[in-house]
Amino acid sequence: MHLDYPDNPLIEFLYWLINTPGLGGIMASVVGGGILLAVGATLRWISKGGQALEPEEFAYPTPALHSHEDTG
């Protein structure tokens, strides 16, 4: 008994995709690396926010901070 998969290049490509050793590792590295890069960029972005020329500093998100958010 043979398994009948349609003779379709797309299906063949997808099978190659899931069956090739190493591609999983590449995928995992892409996902992991992508997340790390995104996290790094976000942290940098937050850190860089400190260079803005704003004299007030808030230890907590106080009403002053919130009310400013509404108006500006």
Partner: peptide, 13 residues
């Protein structure tokens, strides 16, 4: 098997 379940689940071929 023609559709071996063992081959499908092996993470490293």
């Amino acid at each position: 098997c023609e559709n071996p379940p063992c081959v499908k689940v092996c993470p490293v071929q």
